[in-house]
Simulated assay, not measured.
Amino acid sequence: MSISNSKFRDIRAMEAFVAVVSSGSMTAAAKILGISQPAVTRMVRDLEAYVGFDLFQRNGPVISPTEQGMKFYDESRRVMANLDQLKDRAQAIRDDRIAAVDIVATPTMAAGLVSPILARLSDVLPDLVHIETTSAERVVHAMRQRTADLGFSAFPVDHERLKCLAQFESSLVAVVQKGSVYDTGEPLPLSAFNDARLATVGNSFRVRNQIDRAFQDHNIRVKAEILTNSSLNAVMAASAGIGIAICDPVTAFGVPVQGISIRPLAIQIKYSWGLFTPLESNIRDHLTQLTEAFTEVSEAIVAKVENSKTSAKATPESL
């Protein structure tokens, strides 16, 4: 890697930095890269001088990435992945074909939607499909920076300067341990959480905000909680019988988990998700097929939510 008017001229310094963060030490990184430990240390020092901030906190032989270092680590991995794909992408340009599809998705979307959608597109998929899971905020950032071709995220999404190919809306659901006292044919009342532990996502600026509003509107005081950044973790807690999960239908119906029952909530809490691309897409010739596949998978999930409501003995109220 050559950068004009710069002393940093070797991508290997970035490679050394990524290896140190991944392995946990300069010595381990040196073994992975097949070079000496002093060489790794020197390259990391050169990289710190180039970026202008400390990448690691040092306490004798013990090192740990700084907060800025971890952010730079994420960027470095993306840069290196793109460089690794450069030859294939150049050949694809020459042959007028798509070399790769880069997908960025929230953990929920990646677990419950992405694979079923790709399965419907197997005939047109390129050799390389790269899927990265991250927060909704970073999904938007990747789209705007055009470091990904497709983005999957729940709403709310600040999708200015993005193209929303499709959007769906359904309801949050309750996930309970199969055979438990909460595994009934009726919608789960919020009053169950006066006694049971709640398992759900913890970001108060997203769907958790709607859950909290529902509890407040119905004077429910949650006894105890398991908070997580992944709704699948909440589902697994429910399967183990250590809580009742309130989660999105994409995870509940899109990820097969043994030992659970999925119940509608007695109070409807809306949940929306969408498929996004940058305004100028590198895969525009396949967007119609992608949108159709996304629609098929999403419609199936919405239908399962509606069927669960129909089969319940009571009619859900509206939030």
Rank of each mutant, 00 (worst) to 15 (best):
I3A: 05
I3P: 03
S4I: 06
N5D: 03
R9Q: 15
A13N: 11
M14Y: 05
V20M: 10
S23L: 05
M26K: 10
A28I: 05
K31W: 03
L33W: 06
I35P: 03
P38A: 12
R42Q: 11
M43F: 00
D46H: 12
E48Y: 05
E48C: 13
Y50I: 01
G52Q: 07
G52L: 02
F53Y: 14
F53P: 05
L55H: 09
F56P: 02
F56W: 02
F56D: 07
G60Q: 06
S64L: 06
S64K: 15
S64W: 03
S64M: 09
P65R: 08
Q68F: 07
M70T: 08
R78Q: 13
R78P: 00
R78S: 04
N82K: 08
L83R: 10
Q85G: 07
D88T: 01
R89Y: 02
D95T: 07
R97V: 12
R97W: 01
I103P: 00
T106C: 09
T108W: 01
A111S: 14
G112T: 00
L113D: 11
I117S: 08
L118Y: 10
A119R: 15
V124L: 11
L128F: 11
T134A: 00
S135G: 10
R138N: 06
V139L: 06
V140C: 07
R144D: 02
Q145N: 13
A148T: 07
A148R: 13
A154G: 13
A154R: 04
F155I: 03
V157C: 04
V157L: 09
H159P: 03
H159D: 15
R161M: 11
K163S: 09
C164F: 04
L165F: 04
L165G: 08
E169D: 08
S170V: 07
S171F: 06
A174Y: 08
V175M: 05
V176H: 05
K178L: 14
G179E: 10
S180V: 07
Y182G: 02
D183K: 07
D183I: 07
E186W: 08
P187E: 00
L188D: 00
L188E: 05
P189S: 05
P189L: 08
S191L: 03
F193V: 04
A199C: 10
N203R: 12
N203D: 15
S204Q: 10
R208A: 09
F215S: 10
Q216R: 06
H218T: 11
R221Q: 10
A224V: 01
A224D: 14
A224E: 15
A224H: 14
E225G: 01
E225Q: 12
S230G: 04
L232R: 11
L232I: 11
V235K: 09
A237S: 13
I242N: 09
A245K: 13
A245Y: 13
C247S: 14
P249E: 13
V250P: 02
V250K: 04
T251W: 02
F253W: 14
V257T: 15
Q258G: 12
G259W: 13
I260M: 12
S261P: 10
I262E: 03
R263M: 13
A266Y: 05
Q268P: 02
I269T: 08
K270Y: 00
S272F: 03
L275E: 01
P278N: 10
L279H: 12
H286L: 13
T288S: 15
A293L: 14
A293D: 01
E296V: 15
E299W: 02
I301D: 03
V302T: 12
K309F: 08
A314T: 13
P316A: 10
P316T: 09
E317H: 06
